[in-house]
Each structure stands twice: as structure tokens, then as C-alpha cells.
Design a binder for these strands. Structure first.
Lengths: 338, 338
DNA sequence: CCGGATCGTCGAAGCGCTTCGATGATTTCG
DNA sequence: CGAAATCATCGAAGCGCTTCGACGATCCGG
């Protein structure tokens, strides 16, 4: 492997000049710059990452902590991950992949040993134990999610309260009066992943604001759970004309059960899903949905990390506004008067 | 951050002694070792990764190249990825996540800049352009998959030929004589991902060996594709009593279509899937399946990389034997005589 | 009781890069 | 036209670690 000295020799300049050509931190004449560039290309020179990190205390690597197999749906995790990698690359950074199961120790390990410049953490819980560890690190961190007390740590996420409101507004506009929420599994609530609660809060508030009759119900991610959930909903709120489903795992099963029940979507019952676009599109029927913009959120997380590293200002909490896209699963209720 | 010098001072020894305690490359007396350990713990010392890499030319990082959104199913990719991360951690390595779309350049970048000790590459194609680049790197690489000419590069994968044979043997044993293969989408074949071909080869060979009447058909991953595929199969091989499905994307839809068609699984038609265990289990009916052991393959890839790094011997191509697990989707055909 | 192993530790060099201060050379301007 | 400012480049120090050779100290056998 060629070193910076080889390049310097080949270009007839000093190593520091090569370094300055590379970093642009000092003006270098066009002529010299060209010679150096040619030498770099000819020798196939790539700066040694470790040496660079040692000298500059910058690694150009971001840590990404992903849940291993939580109740978060796998495709969504992948979408976040690829978004983070892609965005990182466009900022000339690489991504070190950590799993949540390494816990606090993993974060401290990579941070203390200076493997990364910043950390992006997915799937944070309301009272996540990792938060205090993150606050102590010299590297900044960005959460995807929103804990109870985000003080001192940047957070980005979808605005789930607004998402719930958006879904209800759409249904109310069509004339629905009785709407049920099929929520995440009880495990998600128990675990304290706040997006579930935030959605619930938004749902309840919007329901009141719009004067709707609503009921909310968590849903276990299996056939039995779905059946039980739908049965409970019917029992608690007879004459429901619309469902908001905030649970990708069961989305498909809900549709199947409705169908098995002889209820046509959207003729007999409307369905609005909260899920990534492509999930909404690969269902038997293209679903009206509020997008979970994993790509945007991931990109924003990286962007935020970069600003933090550059000492630029950031908004500590950034909640992206939701977008509802109407597709084929929502329509006016069969009888406009609920 | 504490440095090795701080530790040395605190323990009353020289920095090199601390280093030797850490690496175990030279004998250090119990007494000294303890003092050093205490100092390390007290100061919360973590060696600087860059400095270490620079001095030792070892990064303790593995690159993992994942397909971004190929026709490979996302959960499988995630399973490989988490398996690789977990296994790497157990060997004291971290994982740098690269996406396939960076192509050859990405591999060269991380290798030339000495960011990683070895590379693990998923989703290799028959004639993958990245192969020649990989061969030139000073770091070893391990492929998950099997290209046409794996010369000089270690490969690990499931033995897909054997997997096909296993599926057919199971069905033949039950007395099925007419079996159809619902294969991956044409795009997968076109792309030259060899697992599809290997499965097909194994399927055809075993079919002949067992004296079965079979037909094989790729399948587009949408409702229309599934319908077309099933219709074609019925047209080409009337009286089919069993399906082997080597396409996770459509698995669920195949079951739905069969059901819509009034064909009961397994009473009217048996189904054997080639997919990860948990996919087989989360279907409406637990499926008899040949496991895709992503976890094992990922672990083996890491293990192989480690052996390569340690200069230990390896088998250049390692194909894991398949395991068929009988569940509820296979049974004897309605009439034992096909 | 002495010469040669063996053991435990140290000091120094060096890994490849960045960065700071210094230094000529050139330009600018009063 | 000379002092001051600016420009382009260089040299050297230093980032934090590993590793090699060296060196006393302890051990062994004869």
C-alpha cells in the first residue's frame, strides 16, 4: 500500500502538502494540486484510516445501533439501516453496525475506543438505560425515536401524534363516526417504545376533537390475537365503520379476517394503515396509509449527526410531519350517519 | 480519555508491559498483571482503535456487504446480518456495513484504507464483477453464495441442490408422483444469483432419480404472477399433488390462491417451502420446510474469515447440508397412485 | 558456585497521518 | 520603492499503540 510519503515523493512535494491537497485546509496552487492528484491516482493511494483517526481524532464512521429482533418489523429496520448507510456515505462516512443486545457496554466500547464519531440509536425506549451512558460519551448521539427525557440528546422521528390525527381526520372527512384503533402488541407498550403511546395520545385527542366514538386495542401478532382484537372491538363499539391499524405485523391478517368475516374493504369497513409505503402497496388491496418515512428519518438522523459534528446548530427534537396517502382501502361509510 | 501511558503510570510499569498484559503476547507476572488490570479498570481505559490499527495493522473490523433491495427477501438479509454481527462480536470484531450498490469501489475503498481485516459479501452473482476486485485485495474475503468460479475466495452457503433433493425425497416418500416447483422470480435467474440455478439443478436431478413427473416455473412476486404461475403449472402438469416453493416473497400468496381455489393444504395438495424456519412458522399453516439456516451460514462465514486471518486452514467452499422439518403442510396425496 | 537458560520488564522505534509554526516568494499599497 | 500582508509550501512534532531487541534477575544443572 502506498503511503502519503510515496505520494509526496512521486509528486515532488512534502507529505504535508499532500495532506492539505486532500483536506483542503490550506490553499495549494492549482499546479501542485494537479501533480499531487496525479500521483495519488497513479499509486492508487488511499489514506490509512487508522493513521488518519489517530492524527485527526476523526474516524469518519458512524455507529448505528439496531434492534436485533424486537417487535419492530424487520423491513422497517432494514429501511432505516439502508437509509442511514446511504446518507452516511453521501457525507463521506461509513457505518459500524451494532446490535441493541450489546446494550450500554457496546456503546461505551465503540465510543471509548474512538471507533466512531457519533452514534445513531434506533428503538429507544421511554426510559432507556442507555441514555445516561450516551450523555456521558464525548461523541454526540442521535436517537431515532423519542424517550421521555431527551435532554441533551438529539431525536428524530415521525410525529406519531400528528399521524394519528391525520388518519382520523381523513376518516372523519369521509363521514365515519365510529373508528377503532388496532394498535401494536401489548409487548410494545410494555417495553415503553414511545411511538406507540404517542400515537395513542394523538388518536385519543383527535378523536375528541373530531367528536368521534372510538375504541383502541392492542393486538398480538398472531391469528388468535387478531381475532380476539377484532372481536373485542366489535363488542365494545358495535357498528364500527373504520379501522386504523398501527401494527404492520398484523396488517395482512386483519385484512384476511375481515374478508373471512364477509366484510368488504372499503365498502363495509375502511382501513387506514400506519406503515411504510411499500408495505401499504404490497397488500392484497393498496391501502390508504400514513407513511412511515424510514428513509427520511434515517437521512435526517445522519444529517443531524453531521451538524453536531460540525458544531452547527440543530433542533434537539425533530418530528417529521406525517403524510396520508389515499389509496383503495378507505371510502365513505355504508350509511353516512353513524 | 485515558491512554496506555496513563495506565502504565498508574500501575507503575512501562507502556509496553500494559500492552503485553492486554495482548498476552509475552508472559507477565501475575502480580503485575493484576496491578495493570486494576489501573485499566480504574481509569476506564479502552485502547484507541486507530492507534492500535496503525501499530498492529489489525482493525478488528469485518466488512459486511449487503444487497440493498434486491429480490432477496429482507428478513433473510437481516438474519444474515445479525448472525454476522453476533458471530463477529464473539470473535472480538465489529462490523462495518456496506451496501452492494457501492459496488467494487466500496470494497476497494474500505480495503485500501485499511478499515477492515476481511470482507464478507452477500448476494454474489454467477459472474460477479466484484470478484476480481476482491482477489486483488490484501484482505481475505468470504462469500455468502457461490459464483461460477470461486477460485481463490472462500464461499459458504446452504447446499441448495441437496435442499431440492431433500424436498422431493420427502414428497416422494409420501407417494407424490407429480410435483411442481414454484421458483424465484425471473429477475433472480436473470441476475445470475446461483442459488436459484443450483436449486433447479438439484430439483431436476432428484426428480429424475426418483422417477417423478415434475415441472418448474419461476414466479413473479405479485398476485398476478402467482396466479399465472399456478395456472401454468396446472396446464403443464395436470393432477399435481405437491408444490415445492422456493420463493419466500410469494409463499403467502400461493397459499391464499390455493385456498381461494378450494384446494386444501395438505389434504388436496402438499406444500414444501424453502425458507427460514420462522417464515415457515408464521404462515397461516405451519409449513413443512427446508430451512435456510441464515444464522449458521452467517456464523460460518465469520468463522471462516477468522481462520483466514489466523492463517489456519479452511475449506474453500463450504455448503451446509439442508434440514427438512415436517410440519403441517405435507401429507400423502389424496390418491396414492399418481 | 558458576555459566547458560529462562523469565519479566523496559526503552525506543515506528506505524501513516494531521497540524502548527516557520519560511521564502510574491503581491499589495501608501 | 520598501514595509506589510498574503500565498504556497515545508519540516517537525505528535497522535496512542505494538513490537523488537536488550537487560537485569532468577533459576537450573553439573
Amino acid at each position: 500500500m502506498a503511503t502519503i510519503n510515496d505520494v509526496a515523493r512521486a509528486a515532488g512535494v512534502s507529505p504535508s502538502t499532500v495532506s492539505y491537497v486532500l483536506s483542503g485546509r490550506r490553499p495549494i496552487s492549482e499546479r501542485t494540486r494537479e501533480r499531487v492528484r496525479a500521483a495519488i491516482a497513479e499509486l492508487g493511494f488511499h489514506p490509512h484510516a487508522g493513521a488518519r483517526a489517530l492524527a485527526s481524532s476523526r474516524t469518519n464512521v458512524l455507529a448505528l445501533v439496531v434492534p436485533l429482533r424486537a417487535d419492530v418489523s424487520v423491513p422497517v429496520i432494514m429501511q432505516f439501516a439502508t437509509a442511514v448507510v446511504t446518507a452516511s456515505r453521501s457525507h463521506n462516512h461509513d457505518v459500524l453496525l451494532l446490535t441493541k443486545d450489546e446494550g450500554t457496554a457496546g456503546l461505551e466500547r465503540v465510543a471509548h475506543s474512538t471507533m466512531v464519531d457519533a452514534l445513531i440509536v434506533m428503538d429507544v425506549e421511554r426510559d432507556d438505560v442507555r441514555l445516561t451512558a450516551l450523555r456521558k460519551l464525548k461523541q454526540p448521539s442521535v436517537l431515532i425515536g423519542l424517550p421521555e427525557d431527551p435532554a441533551g440528546i438529539a431525536c428524530v422521528d415521525l410525529d406519531f401524534e400528528a399521524a394519528a390525527a391525520e388518519a382520523l381526520r381523513h376518516l372523519a372527512w369521509y363521514g365515519h363516526r365510529r373508528v377503532a384503533l388496532v394498535g401494536p402488541s401489548p409487548a410494545v407498550y410494555r417495553r415503553g417504545t414511545t411511538y406507540a403511546e404517542r400515537f395513542l395520545t394523538g388518536f385519543t385527542a383527535a378523536s375528541a376533537g373530531l367528536g368521534l366514538e372510538t375504541v383502541t386495542h392492542p393486538c398480538e401478532p398472531d391469528r388468535a390475537g387478531v381475532r380476539a382484537c377484532l372481536a373485542d372491538i366489535d363488542a365494545q363499539l358495535p357498528g364500527v365503520t373504520a379501522l386504523v391499524v398501527h401494527n404492520e405485523e398484523v396488517l395482512r391478517m386483519v385484512l384476511e379476517e375481515l374478508r373471512a368475516d364477509g366484510r368488504r374493504v372499503p365498502a363495509d369497513i375502511s382501513v387506514v394503515a400506519i406503515c411504510p409505503r411499500d408495505v401499504a402497496l404490497t397488500m392484497p388491496l393498496p391501502l390508504t396509509s400514513v407513511d412511515i418515512p424510514a428513509h427520511d428519518v434515517g437521512g435526517l438522523a445522519v444529517e443531524t449527526a453531521m451538524r453536531l459534528l460540525d458544531g452547527r446548530s440543530i433542533e434537539p427534537v425533530r418530528l417529521l410531519p406525517p403524510t396520508l396517502v389515499e389509496r383503495e382501502s378507505s371510502a365513505p361509510p355504508a350509511t353516512a350517519a353513524g
